[in-house]
Simulated scan of single mutants.
Amino acid sequence: MRHEGVVRVKWTREELKAVREALEITPNFEGRLEAREVVKVALRTPRMRDVTIDLDLAQRLGSRIVPIDAPTAMARAKLLLAVRGPRKRGIAETMQAAHRPPAYAPPLSAPPMPAPSIAASAAA
């Protein structure tokens, strides 16, 4: 979810641990210490709530995390989804369902006639 420059991500505890480990091996980048602090506070909370991250920090963090295992990849995917929004999959406006060609179009002309067989020509 996005609210005025803030991103909320619903990470599981396993994903938070994976992000913490990924931050430890990630080279320095602007906001790394702040990201470590956000993850540390989120891990200390007794009940899991959405992790709230600044939008700029979330964009930098999403581009810096390297998915080395499944929880890290899922945490990165959730973060990028929260930053970029859901992917829009649908029919383009120029190709709406009413204007699509039919799946099977009948042939425009009749099929060619087969050549007369030799038996038919011998009977004549």
Rank of each mutant, 00 (worst) to 15 (best):
R76C: 05
R49K: 12
A98I: 08
V51S: 04
S117A: 10
S63N: 03
R13Q: 06
A77C: 05
V83R: 04
K17S: 14
Y104C: 13
P86T: 07
M74E: 11
R60Q: 12
P107T: 09
I25P: 00
R87H: 09
A105P: 04
D56I: 13
P86D: 11
P102N: 05
P111W: 02
T52R: 15
P86W: 01
R89P: 04
A98H: 12
P71N: 08
E21Y: 06
E15T: 02
K88T: 10
Q96S: 10
Q59H: 07
A22G: 03
I118Q: 12
E30F: 13
A75S: 08
A42R: 06
M113R: 14
P102V: 06
L61G: 09
E30I: 15
K17I: 09
I118K: 14
N28A: 15
R76G: 00
S121Y: 10
A42L: 07
R60G: 04
A124I: 08
S117M: 11
V38L: 02
V39M: 09
L16S: 02
V39F: 01
L33G: 10
A110T: 13
P114G: 01
M113C: 09
E93L: 15
T26V: 07
E34C: 02
E15A: 03
A70D: 07
A120P: 02
L33N: 14
A119F: 12
L43D: 04
L57I: 00
R100Y: 07
I65H: 02
T72M: 02
V39K: 02
L57T: 06
W11A: 00
G85F: 00
A105T: 15
D50C: 09
A75R: 01
I25M: 12
E15K: 07
T94V: 11
A75D: 02
I65T: 01
P112A: 05
G31E: 05
V83G: 02
V83Y: 04
A120T: 10
V7K: 02
P27M: 00
M95E: 14
T72Q: 06
V41W: 13
L108E: 08
K40H: 12
R47G: 08
Y104K: 15
R89C: 03
I68G: 07
P102Q: 06
A75G: 00
G85A: 03
R89F: 12
I68Q: 01
A82M: 00
V51G: 05
R64N: 07
K40Y: 11
R47D: 08
I91D: 11
A115M: 14
P27C: 09
A120L: 13
S121L: 15
R76N: 01
R8Q: 10
T26R: 13
M95R: 15
V66E: 10
L61T: 03
F29G: 00
R84E: 13
E37H: 10
L108P: 04
L16R: 14
L79Q: 00
F29E: 04
D54S: 06
S117W: 14
F29P: 05
A119L: 15
T52W: 13
I53Y: 08
M48Y: 07
L57H: 00
A115N: 11
A120W: 06
T26W: 01
P112L: 13
I91M: 14
A73Y: 05
L81C: 05
T72F: 00
R49C: 10
A97Y: 03
K78G: 00
